[in-house]
Design a protein around this nucleic acid. Structure first.
Length: 429
RNA sequence: GGAGACGUGGCCGAGCCAGGUUGAAGGCGCUUCCCUGCUAAGGAAGUAACGUCGUAAGGCGUUCGUGGGUUCAAAUCCCACCGUCUCCGCCA
């Protein structure tokens, strides 16, 4: 949520920033209008409340002195004021509700440093590593859905039978590789990040905190009977972990990581990227997360990016890092770097991490503040998140990249400690 | 799921059954100062967040789990919901 005070004092700057995303700014004007009315009403209401309080005290005193007649007059007057107060309160609440719902649907302002542009074509490629398109042999140019079927490590048909399309099931060595990737993703960040295993199903207000609701309700699974939502990313419960709390500056930066299942309805993308693991409704992910001060945020952003990229690099996968254009940054972010791995079989780049700096946007929604040392009052924290390891797409890239001429798949060196005696997935009989 | 008890400030804990001057006693913690060779003990003062008006000092308002209701007036009365604890049931 944007700062209403900023909208009040510098509406043009806010509108200019929002416009860089290609989003409409009309709601900013509406907010401005509603806000000035709600404040005028609030002032009047507060004055009346103060008067009612005074009168009530007098009534009490008069009753004590046995002057019921005088009290009765005041009570009548107070009752009238009360009616007026009620009407003003209703109006103010109504307007405040309108403002809130408008603001909840406005995205964060992109950072001034975020590249211009509205589509992914405007993203800036910062670096490409370990990639030589001519270096791939024919046996690597087989898409993972075919390789996986040959090796019996992914059972899509049966998963679809029990859960519907775009659900998958890992089997045997495939499931083991999945588990190794999760452990690897967590362990390499254990030096600084606290491991958390949060709930996978959360309340509506928890989803609002990150910005996933109300705007993107079609993307999430909703359990209607209990009004709970299946999380699309661990970012949701992790943000909520300290919702409503006032942290000590000494606790910052707070570094958290979590492995969870993530659930996405992919409502807008039916029929797209449906092969194999390119796009699935349920997947595993290790998320890196931080709450910090505004001053700590830029370094933290780089740290999370470096950790996410390091995990991919050490797996020996070709990858690139993109600086996302304003229009391609998700709602809560102000600056986002994407990491994509190259999958030689599918012959395409796959997004495996989105490292976002959300400034105080989520902190306002979830009401997360800290007490700056040597300063009175509180400030909103900054929140940052990034996938430490999005498992299915990395799994797919490994299966394709490490496929040998004989059809077997070698396991990356760094995963061996997690695989016991499994150094490869052998070629079929 | 059933029965009962309970939800007060950073923490503990009064107040609620007899509604009024209670933003809320007392204690702990914390901050500053005094005392002191140092420490301990002791003394004094301070110690919420948010909104709004104001250059400021400060004023006004909101918040005693959440939301409604009753009343001139609600931490106190009524209703609903959420949560916690205990016992029973069930279960990994």
């Amino acid at each position: 949520m944007l700062d209403i005070k900023l909208i009040r004092t510098d509406p043009e700057a806010v509108k200019t920033a929002i416009a860089r995303r290609g989003e409409s700014t009309t709601s900013i004007d509406e907010v401005l209008q509603l806000d000035s009315r709600v404040r005028a009403i609030g002032t009047e209401r507060d004055d009346i409340r103060a008067e009612v309080k005074q009168i009530s005290k007098q009534v009490g005193a008069l009753h004590k002195d046995g002057k019921a007649d005088e009290a009765a007059d005041l009570q009548t007057k107070s009752r009238e004021l009360g009616d007026r107060e009620k009407a003003l309160t209703d109006e103010a609440d109504e307007l405040a509700g309108q403002i809130r719902s408008l603001l909840l649907n406005v995205s964060n302002m992109p950072s001034p440093e975020a590249p211009d542009g509205l589509t992914e074509d405007d993203n800036i490629e910062l670096r490409v590593e370990n990639f030589d398109p001519g270096s791939y042999a024919d046996h690597q140019k087989v898409p993972h859905w075919d390789v996986a079927e040959q090796l019996g490590i992914l059972d899509v048909d049966r998963a679809v039978r029990m859960s519907g399309s775009m659900f998958v099931m890992y089997r045997g060595a495939g499931a083991r590789l999945l588990r190794a990737l999760i452990a690897y993703g967590l362990d390499r960040n254990r030096d600084a990040f606290e491991e958390v295993r949060p709930p996978t199903v959360v309340k509506t207000e928890t989803m609002i905190g990150t910005g996933h609701l109300p705007k993107f309700s079609d993307d999430a699974y909703h359990l209607e009977r209990d009004d709970l939502w299946a999380i699309p990313t661990a970012e949701v419960p992790l943000t909520s972990m300290v919702a409503g709390e006032i942290l000590d500056e000494s606790e910052l930066p707070m570094r958290l990581m979590a492995h969870t299942s993530c659930f996405r309805r992919e409502a807008g993308s039916a029929g797209r990227d449906t092969r194999g693991l390119l796009r699935v409704h349920e997947f595993d992910k290790v998320e890196l997360y931080s709450f910090c001060t505004p001053e700590q945020a830029p370094d933290m952003h780089m740290e999370i990016l470096a950790r996410a990229e390091g995990a991919i690099r050490d797996l020996g996968l070709a990858h690139r890092v993109l600086d996302l254009a304003c229009g391609d940054i998700s709602g809560a972010g102000s600056r986002t770097y994407d990491i994509e791995v190259f999958a030689p079989g599918a012959d395409r780049w796959l997004e495996v991490s989105s490292v976002s700096w959300c400034t105080d946007y989520q902190a306002r929604r979830a009401n997360i503040r800290y007490r700056p040392e040597g300063e009175k009052g509180t400030r909103f924290v900054h929140s940052l998140n990034g996938s430490g390891l999005a498992v299915p797409r990395v799994w797919a890239a490994i299966i394709e990249t490490y496929r040998q001429a004989d059809g077997s798949v070698r396991m990356p060196e760094v995963l061996l400690p997690y695989l016991g005696d499994m150094t490869e997935i052998p070629a079929p009989g």
